[in-house]
Amino acid sequence: MASALDSGLRRNDEKRPPIALTVLGGFLGAGKTTLLNHLLRAPQGERVLVMVNDFGAINIDAELIAQGAPDLPEGIINLANGCACCAIGGDLMQAFLKVLSLSEPPDRVVVEASGVADPARIAAMGRSGGHFRCDGVITVVDAQQVQALARDRYVGDTVQAQLRAADLLLLNKTDLVTPQALAGLRRWLGAQASGVPVLESRQAEVDPRLILGPLLADPADAAPPSAEPDIDHEARFVSHRFTTAHPVRRVALEAALASLPPQVLRAKGFVFLQGEDGPRVLQLCGRRWSLGSPGAAQNRHHTRIVLIAARQDDAPAFNVWSHFEACVAADG
């Protein structure tokens, strides 16, 4: 009996920050691999490890993953075993255990779910015991096929569940449908996955910050506060910053996050709550957000939040300062 346990218990004592987890879902042919390659082609300065739950050959450009973990020369873990989300003790669990055992764990794990997987089940791993932190479920949608697939005799319910599981939907291949059809699709998606923001793309070309979350430098070197939003080159998305040296009131912060206008798609931040010396990681994807456990204590309690919103000229302007003002405690 002892032989099975030669390694004994691994120590969980050393406190490592949770590894960000991004799950890409969507049926076969939606463009998940194209999106993954697109993300890897525009590195965000993170060490990314990719898990592919695909059948047969892996179509990821190997050169793009050279930055992967040193213990895994290719930076890919192939989740071969079909529907990884439900295999207890199977490849997905084995893969997550392997990531934790790496001497230099990655900053982020991106899982490309199989075409029939429920991405929500994989994302649940990111809410598990502090090892991983789910950074969002993005379901890629094939504009041409999705409505027929959602009616399919065998896979209709699977496709619908993938839409419902999403924090963000990426409506892909929009160039292959007419503008009228696209308008109809938007309404249809709104009914299928109520309240879930919909991004649009042609060949899964989308701002990586929308999929992986905005970049955030170390809280110690906070940028000077700026009331002017940054406007990206295509002017389709606007980035907002909120910073304060005062402590943040949790209840007010939760209320502010729950009442964000629909054009806000993503947010990320380091937040010093009232009475705490270590920053918590704030993460928001679509309508779902989380606030991690406090990190190591720091001298400067500098709260910093970056938000990305869709630019909507017809929507009321979003003023980040007035929206978060009430969160700031009068004094620390």
Partner: peptide, 20 residues
């Protein structure tokens, strides 16, 4: 219940049942 909840236990003891 289910893998996400069980995972921290397997992270501590390894994937022992399934490797044996």
């Amino acid at each position: 219940q289910e893998m996400a909840a069980m995972f921290p236990v397997f992270a501590a003891i390894g994937n022992v049942y399934f490797e044996a």
